[in-house]
Nucleic acid binder design. Structure first.
Lengths: 203, 203
DNA sequence: CCTTTTTTGTTATACTGCGTAGCAGTATGT
DNA sequence: ACATACTGCTACGCAGTATAACAAAAAAGG
């Protein structure tokens, strides 16, 4: 574990090595399944000694986390601004921004959905998105019961993620603008419309 | 591979062995993560010789498939009858039946969602459910454009699965009857309401 | 420029699980 | 009782993980 609490800058060699490992993992995940990727394979493609991997990461999972967190942070911030919107026109526009961002980082998100053993990460993303909507929707009004709010926010989060996945699998066919409209009507409008008519569910 | 094209009945020893292996896998998956389960561990718990596993299955995946297909078939048939309903009262009742079925086979579905390397299976399930709704919703009426239908049916399938997952993680707290209502209003009503107002998306 | 520090490369090691093979033992049903 | 099929046991080669010791190379500081 090189340079634990870096007093100054990070050693250029360290940055280079970590970047090579990240790129090698991404490159491999676009070719084969995550479960079949070995650490030896990664270090080989990164043109780095095998043991070097363990000098920077404790496990393959940790490397994968670092790779995905990079791009997922951008998605979360966009969703956060989206969740605060209440006007109809702004909702569509923000929805479009999300799908444009996805399209720009398509490789990264393809990895997120395609790979098999990242269900854990996907769950974490769902949790984050749901939390965003849970807090931003609470002051919106007449949601009855904690459970109902939890169900609704979870519904929004999972639906959005599933829609993104579907879009990627269909080669991003409908344009981001069109997907923004779909997102608004199919997820947001219908959910807020339904929640107000939902029964108060026993906790 | 014992008794490939069985001319008569299956050897009792074979049925016993396969059952032991299936039960051992389920038992282990409820304790630890799928990725950390070894074939030796399974045969050990099943009280069966290591090599016996390979006399019945080619891979661990194949065993997992056999285990999950068993219970997923029941879910799909219930969803199929549900998809054909159009009356409001029947929708709620059928929705309740689904969650009651899930509750009855909770262990199986916990495995489906909890385990990590079954994203492939989950995807297959989504595809099946979406296909059901796609065919049963097409004659329902005024859905414009193939893409819109595809998005909507995918939305229903993923939302239903996500709702089931949420319900299991919350220890099946709201009753199946309440979940049936939530399902109807949050997924079905809002989706069919939204679809009719959706723009025709370019193919 | 030279020295010290840090990182990287090389090689070797113990450990674990996978998949296969051969042979002996045991259960099935006819 | 008999042939057939299934199961148990032991051993082996292979691949990947995680770690260690020592040599080589690159960065930082004077």
């Amino acid at each position: 574990m090189p340079r634990k609490s870096s007093p100054k800058e990070v050693d250029p060699r360290v940055r280079r090595t970590r970047r090579l490992l990240r790129d090698a993992l991404v490159s491999l995940m676009l070719e084969e399944d995550f479960s079949s990727i070995s650490i030896r394979e990664i270090t080989e493609r990164a043109e780095v000694a095998y043991i070097t991997f363990y000098r920077h990461y404790e496990s393959l999972d940790q490397l994968l986390m670092e790779v995905l967190d990079e791009g997922l942070a951008g998605l979360l911030t966009r969703i956060e601004t989206l969740a605060k919107q209440s006007e109809t026109s702004a909702l569509e526009a923000e929805g479009r921004l999300i799908f444009e961002y996805i399209g720009g980082n398509a490789d990264l998100f393809r990895i997120l959905f395609k790979s098999q053993s990242v269900a854990r990460i996907r769950k974490r993303v769902v949790k984050n998105i749901a939390a965003i909507f849970q807090t931003s929707c609470a002051p919106l009004g007449r949601l009855d019961g904690q459970v109902t709010i939890a169900i609704a926010s979870n519904h929004i989060a999972t639906s959005l993620l599933a829609m993104i996945e579907w879009w990627l699998e269909n080669n991003m066919k409908p344009t981001p603008a069109e997907m923004g409209k779909v997102y608004k009507s199919l997820i947001i409008d219908s959910t807020v419309g339904a929640v107000s008519s939902l029964p108060v569910v026993s906790k």
